[in-house]
């Protein structure tokens, strides 16, 4: 890398730019530095105590529009047809074929509410439907959405769990959605079962109340985490969901009541935005636990608007573009005046 000519040729050390100072002046600069730092520390401490965040989330905003429809858990419900879709990119797969087929690169998210419940519909491409987890080597397709325990859009301060406020995760699993097998024949055809009728005590996981036990597991696990390895089921399993698979992939609907009194679970209020992120597991790829694809952040806000007709969404960007033009005009004006 050689000298580049132009201004940089003559650029010199910052020492003289910032200051070339005698001892007395250095002292005063030091005092100034201490004063600025002290003021900043006080201001930061105040913000910390007030839990006020000077920054605003800029991530993709998803509006949960109001619907009058009697919405169920059917992912194919017509009420979703006109709901705006947001595509969130996922981190590329970490398998040996980073560009290979079948890797999930994005989820499409829609949101609705009916003043009672929040509905999220998540769609992602997956050519294989991995529902059965009967065999030791079979893993389930799954999707999860994660919120800060206290609804807030304060990237980066709160998201993804801190000791002071953890995260609430709703995980839908294809195998749980399909329900427990009715007979062993479903899992292992032609297997002779010596003791077909057994008591609950012959299922230790069931006895101790493991929420992932096939018998008890709902389609959606409501989980809480607060730092290291603390992920565990929430006391109330208040999240419902259902997914369906077609040629394109999975479409899953998740539902929970807007307000929650349980600790560690956010309440969704009108006009309040909260961060969220999604994760997708591809069972065919032996994905489970940390082997997953994770989305970028988005913010979710409840809206009073109902599902819009086509085209009305142009207005806001139009205004924004005009504002941009004004900024450029000001900048150009500034240049012209000064030159």
């Amino acid at each position: 890398m050689g000298r580049t000519g132009g201004d940089t040729m003559t650029s010199h050390s910052d020492v003289d730019v910032s200051s070339v100072a005698g001892t007395r002046n250095l002292l005063t600069r030091r005092v100034g530095m201490v004063l600025v730092l002290a003021a900043a520390v006080v201001a930061a401490a105040t913000l910390q105590i007030l839990d006020a965040n000077p920054a605003t989330s800029q991530t993709t905003g998803i509006s949960a529009l109001r619907t009058e429809a009697d919405l169920g858990l059917d992912p194919g419900d017509g009420a979703w047809d006109r709901v705006p879709e947001t595509e969130l990119p996922l981190t590329a797969q970490q398998t040996s074929y980073p560009f290979g087929g079948g890797s999930v690169t994005a989820v499409t998210v829609q949101a609705l509410h009916d003043d009672e419940s929040l509905y999220l519909r998540v769609t992602w491409p997956d050519s294989t439907s991995d529902v059965g987890t009967g065999a030791p080597e079979a893993f389930s397709d799954a999707v999860a959405v994660q919120f800060p325990s206290v609804a807030a859009a304060t990237v980066p301060a709160v998201c993804m769990g801190q000791a002071s406020s953890g995260v609430n995760i709703w995980q839908w699993r294809a195998d749980s959605d399909a329900g427990p097998p009715d007979t062993m024949d479903e899992i292992r055809p032609n297997t002779v079962v010596d003791v077909p009728e057994t008591a609950n005590e012959d299922y230790p996981a069931r006895v101790v109340g493991n929420p992932f036990d096939a018998e008890d597991a709902g389609a959606v696990q409501n989980l809480l985490a607060e730092g290291f390895g603390t992920i565990g089921p929430a006391e109330d399993q208040a999240v419902a969901g259902h997914g369906e698979h077609d040629d394109q992939g999975w479409t899953v609907v998740l539902r929970r009541e807007l307000s929650s009194t349980a600790g560690g679970e956010p309440s969704f209020r009108m006009g309040e935005a909260t961060d969220m992120a999604f994760a997708v597991w591809d069972g065919a790829n032996e994905e489970r636990n940390g082997l997953k694809s994770v989305s970028a952040f988005a913010t979710l806000a409840l809206s009073n608007d109902t599902v819009p007709g086509a085209g009305s969404g142009w207005i806001i960007p139009l205004v924004a573009v005009m504002l941009a033009a004004v900024v450029i005009a000001i900048a150009r004006g500034g240049m012209r005046r000064s030159s």
Binding site: S63, T86, L88
Partner: peptide, 14 residues
């Protein structure tokens, strides 16, 4: 994404 979320046209942004 935001325009699409507001009900505007969907663009393949990948």
């Amino acid at each position: 994404q935001q325009v699409a979320a507001e009900g505007g046209p969907t663009v393949d942004g990948a």
